[in-house]
Design a protein around this nucleic acid. Structure first.
Length: 425
RNA sequence: GUGGGCGUAGCUCAGUAGGUUAGAGCGCCAGGUUGUGGCCCUGGAGGUCGCGGGUUCGAAUCCCGUCGCUCACCCCA
């Protein structure tokens, strides 16, 4: 048996599953606290759901095949098209804002690397049907809490925030033609990796004159005030900046100011964002973004869904999991057993099983030895399982209807009547 | 898709001027005489040295290919 899992796919051994479950239940808890409700869709979707509206690079990375009914199908690479369809079907009936979350397993055929596999779990939280800046702030707050929940704080990670509309207006101010704003925005995104020279050349290509290019390079990295000061003459810039200021004021109300910073260099690669964009990053490490999202007011309609404003984010379990392991915040193992019931001789086995049953009925996690090994070995097994108590049933205990209960942490042991043992749980 | 590094037991790693049955620690299993764990002692299981081919009398050690992991690109949920 030499079969291994496919590249980029994971086997979850119990200790791995412990981390996965820790993350997933933490996310659920945070989503619940923000008033989001959970939904899910099929992992397998019609291929057209993605080919029609998604970019070619996404289509290249799709897991696709033709099923036995001769349908072209794909494993879902993202959740938004499914969300658009589901919300679309009931758009009229659902009270707004619609606050839904999901933790789908998503698939993408690409080169696996640290923090990026071909499959991952991703928390998706979306708000549909609301444009107020308060929804922007609450969504980012939820994203931050979805990381803070695991014990990370503002020394560990930070949220970079920007606004596509503001950046678009700035680009318009410096002379990018109306129809090429999106291209210029994507160029800004690539410039993070390609450098200023590349950006200058690209902007020139897009029709920006020398002064405009200099202007863009100047304001890259400026804070919000610096940016508005630079374009002091523009009412549009001032207005767009005001929304961001309101956003930061709200983040302060959420008590999360320490986490958020405006970053004019952040634009995110996806073409469909129309306003707020944000990413969560580990402060020091070389890991990828923990999370990314933003406002996409036109996307649902573009996907054939309802014409409703929306915003959302995706947060993968892979990068977050790496980070938790790095910081020593990952659980070592799944919850251990509560009680280990020892039978001293085979004659007490039945009595011991009955005790175990009563304890289980009370909700205790109980384990026993199967082979009647020596008491010493049974204790060792109890220790290995991390039992908090070991309950010994021997001839004396059986006769007296008692049990010897040993606290495994302190080593303290006492004889307790069975009734008390069971009722005391 | 492109380039670099790596690939020996479940884990962390030794082991090259190529030479008889490939090692250690941890972990696992069984004992240490049948009523008590964490320590200790003894024994054991477990490896086609990633896989395939080549060079050689002989390869874990050299060469080629391939797969996987990883890092940097590319791209990004």
């Amino acid at each position: 048996m030499t079969l291994s899992s496919l590249p980029g796919f994971r086997d979850f051994y119990p200790e791995d599953f412990a981390l996965r479950d820790h993350i997933v239940s933490g996310w659920r808890e945070v989503a619940r606290r923000y008033g989001f409700v959970e939904y899910d869709g099929p992992p397998l979707e019609p291929l057209e759901l993605y080919t029609d509206k998604s970019g070619p690079e996404i289509v290249d990375q799709l897991y696709t095949f033709v099923d036995k009914g001769n349908r072209a199908v794909a494993l879902r690479p993202e959740m938004t098209p499914t969300l658009a369809r589901m919300v679309g079907a009931r758009a009229q009936a659902l009270p707004k804002p619609i606050k839904w979350f999901s933790i789908p397993q998503l698939f993408r055929y690409e080169r696996p690397q640290r923090g990026r596999l071909r499959e991952h779990l991703q928390l998706n939280m979306d708000i549909v049907g609301e444009t107020d800046v308060m929804s922007d702030a609450e969504l980012v707050a939820a994203a931050i809490d979805a990381v803070r929940h695991f014990g990370l704080n503002s020394e560990d990670f930070t949220a970079r925030v920007s606004d596509r509309r503001l950046i678009g207006i700035v680009l318009q101010e410096v002379g990018v033609p109306e129809g090429r704003i999106v291209e210029a925005i994507l160029a800004l995104d690539r410039a993070e990796r390609q450098g200023d020279e590349w950006l200058a050349a690209r902007l020139t290509e897009l029709g920006v004159d020398e002064a405009g290019v200099r202007s863009v390079l100047d304001v890259r990295g400026h804070d919000l005030d610096g940016l508005t000061a630079h374009f002091a003459g523009s009412r549009d810039v001032a207005e767009a900046a005001d929304r961001l200021r309101a956003f930061f004021a709200l983040m302060s109300d959420h008590g999360l100011s320490a986490y958020v910073t405006f970053d004019s260099r952040l634009v995110r690669g996806l073409a469909y964002y129309t306003g707020l964009v944000f990413e969560l990053w580990e402060r020091e490490g070389r890991l990828r973004a923990i999370c990314g999202g933003g406002r996409y007011d036109d996307l649902l309609a573009a996907l054939g869904g309802p014409d409703l404003p929306a915003l959302g984010f995706g947060m993968g379990d892979v990068v977050l999991g790496e980070l938790l392991k790095e910081k020593g915040l990952a659980p070592e193992r799944q919850a251990s057993v509560d009680d280990f019931v020892v039978y001293v001789t085979l004659a007490q086995r039945s009595a011991a099983i009955r005790v175990a049953r009563r304890l289980r009925e009370r909700g205790r996690g109980v384990a026993m030895d199967y082979r009647g090994r020596s008491v010493g070995r049974q204790f060792r097994a109890a220790d290995q399982l991390g039992a908090s108590r070991t309950i010994v049933i021997g001839p004396d205990e059986e006769r007296d209807r008692t049990a010897s209960v040993r606290d495994m942490a302190t080593g303290e042991e006492k004889v307790v009547p069975l009734v008390e043992l069971i009722e005391g749980v």
